[in-house]
Design a protein around this nucleic acid. Structure first.
Length: 515
RNA sequence: GGCCCGUUCGUCUAGGGGUUAGGACGCAGGAUUUUCAUUCCUGUAACACGGGUUCGAUUCCCGUACGGGCUACCA
């Protein structure tokens, strides 16, 4: 068991935790929760702790923990403590802390703030069937099978005899619980509305409620920043802190608004991504069943900084008009009080805008490193200088990484198809000899750079009484197959003389027979 | 149903008792550009409703409506 007396942590040091359960993929909402925790920790010089809440053996998904760790790392949020990350408050997997929880559950029985209960899940389900408002609480606990009605001795005899049992919190009667939430302010609950939550399950594992309170206490957590879905059970958590005599060091609570579906009603769910063809997960997940597989922002071609920036502003605002924030800027500007109270709709257009901003701002070498795998996947191994120059030409024209290829593949291989709609009226067979003159002019250029190409073209246009509108679109479609793209001379200079001239020639031949 | 939370442009939000209610995304138009994109400019569009309190309420209070969450031996 963790011995807190040996801890070297200063009493006032901020310690926050991100505590997901490894039941599958973590969507963007979870990442945002982690981010807000991380930002507070970094800002305060505190610690960001990853704790794996794997107390539900039935829902455990192998690989989910590794997924969570990888997703956090991709986003640039490396835990200071956690499974595989070290730390002096471990173990950080709740399944490895069973004895600790049992110890405190038993302590509560001794103090009379908890009791053994023997009603099976089936029996309770039957009760709920009969009465939809059934609640295992003060009003009914004296008429059910538990150590309150049976007596502790009889209860222990049953347990010794092998009867299945749980431990439940004995919620105190007729009290008002006040919670000061950092985001919502004062929130109150009547204990008469609360049920006697199971603390220790019949399989010996704790429920979220017990494990959470015990771990947050032992790990010296100072701020609990978690989703709004936990607000209703916070009253139980306060009762638990009280029952264990830890109320004076209870962490502060901040309940985050949820992220809502891009379209329709309700909170963002796993299915929304597949339904709309957009990513709602940080990174991809390859599931056993194909229908469970998901694509992540990473694989979709987002930069982690862009995702972080987008997420930070989805439900939080610094109060200034700044939109672009590095992780460092976020952590210095962050404040829990400025988190908004209402749910924020997931806006993929805005996510793309952030990504475009980050791509444009990145230097060519960095982009080249990100784009290389995409280009290589299409069977090309460009030289570093070429790829960097390519990125420089394309980066203002893409919003996600794969578009470097989609919109610029013609820098690596021949044009797949020519869009003739823009030049059909401009291309005239009788002008072919004239364009051949331009090809000739290009061919004799000693320096195949932008200035010389421009000079040669200007001269050509002047001599043949042609306007840019007669020439440039033709060159563009011939070179790229499309009317969109970087400046023509930039393209040609990068392609090089031989490739440019040959490509123009072939395209002109094609135009002659196609138009 | 019960309990809890929320409600400013289509979306993310700033603001806050007296403002032309600000910014961003998106959309529309324009300028620049050989094209696309970038950049710049302009436009579009909001305080859910009803009562209070107040000289004055979008801002404070109460209701209503609507939205959200919880209501498991899941987290």
């Amino acid at each position: 068991m963790t011995d807190i007396s040996k801890s070297t942590t200063p009493a006032n040091k901020v310690r926050v935790r991100f505590a997901p359960s490894p039941t599958g993929v973590l969507h963007i909402g979870g990442i945002r929760t982690a981010l807000y925790n991380y930002l507070l920790a970094k800002q305060q010089g505190g610690s960001f702790i990853l704790r794996i809440e794997d107390t539900d053996q039935g829902r455990y998904v192998p690989g989910a923990e590794a997924y969570i760790a990888e997703a956090l790392q991709w986003c640039g949020m490396i835990p200071d403590e956690g499974p595989g990350f070290g730390g002096e408050y471990g173990p950080y997997r709740q399944s490895e802390r069973k004895d600790i929880y049992r110890h405190y559950a038993l302590e509560m029985i001794e103090k009379g703030t908890a009791y053994y209960a023997f009603d099976t899940p089936e029996a309770l389900d039957a009760q709920r069937q009969a009465d939809p408002n059934f609640k295992y609480g003060a009003a009914v606990r004296m008429s059910l099978e538990n150590s309150l009605t049976l007596g502790l001795e009889e209860a222990e005899r049953r347990i010794a005899a092998g009867a299945p049992w749980v431990i439940r919190l004995k919620v105190v009667e007729n009290e008002t619980i006040h919670i000061h939430d950092l985001i919502r302010g004062e929130v109150t609950f009547q204990t008469s509305e609360l049920d006697d939550k199971v603390l220790l399950k019949s399989d010996g594992m704790p429920t979220y409620h017990l494990a959470n309170i015990v771990d947050d206490h032992l790990m010296k957590i100072t701020h609990v920043i978690r989703g709004e879905e936990w607000l209703p059970s916070t009253a139980h958590h306060v009762l638990l802190y009280r029952a264990l005599n830890w109320e004076d060091t209870m962490p502060q609570f901040a309940h985050l608004p949820l992220i809502m579906k891009p379209v329709g009603n309700g909170k963002l769910s796993k299915r929304d991504g597949a339904k709309l063809g957009i990513p709602v997960f940080p990174i991809s997940w390859k599931a056993d069943k194909p229908e469970d597989a998901v694509v992540g922002f990473r694989e979709y071609g987002f930069l982690p900084d862009a995702v972080v920036n987008f997420l930070a502003l989805l439900g939080w605002s610094p109060g200034t008009e700044q939109e672009i924030f590095s992780m460092e800027e976020l952590s210095s500007a962050f404040s829990i009080e400025k988190i908004s109270k209402s749910g924020a709709r997931f806006d993929f257009d805005k996510a793309k805008w952030f990504n475009q901003q980050y791509i444009m701002a990145r230097d060519n070498a960095t982009l080249a490193a990100m784009v290389r795998p995409i280009v290589e996947a299409h069977g090309h191994q460009p030289e570093a200088a070429f790829l960097e120059a390519f990125c420089g030409l394309m980066k203002e024209r893409v919003t996600v990484l794969p578009e470097f290829w989609d919109n610029g593949y013609y820098f690596f291989e021949e044009v797949h198809s020519h869009d003739l709609s823009g030049i059909a009226k401009k291309w005239k067979k009788e002008q072919r000899p004239v364009f051949d003159l331009l090809l000739e002019a290009f061919s004799v250029l000693s320096q195949f750079d932008v200035e010389n190409l421009k000079a040669a073209t200007d001269q050509f246009m002047a001599q043949n009484e042609l306007k840019t509108g007669d020439v440039f679109p033709v060159l563009r479609v011939a070179l790229a197959g499309t009317m969109k793209g970087p400046a023509i001379f930039d393209m040609m200079a990068l392609l090089g003389k031989a490739a440019s001239v040959k490509r123009l020639q072939n395209a002109f031949d094609y135009f002659d027979q196609a138009i």
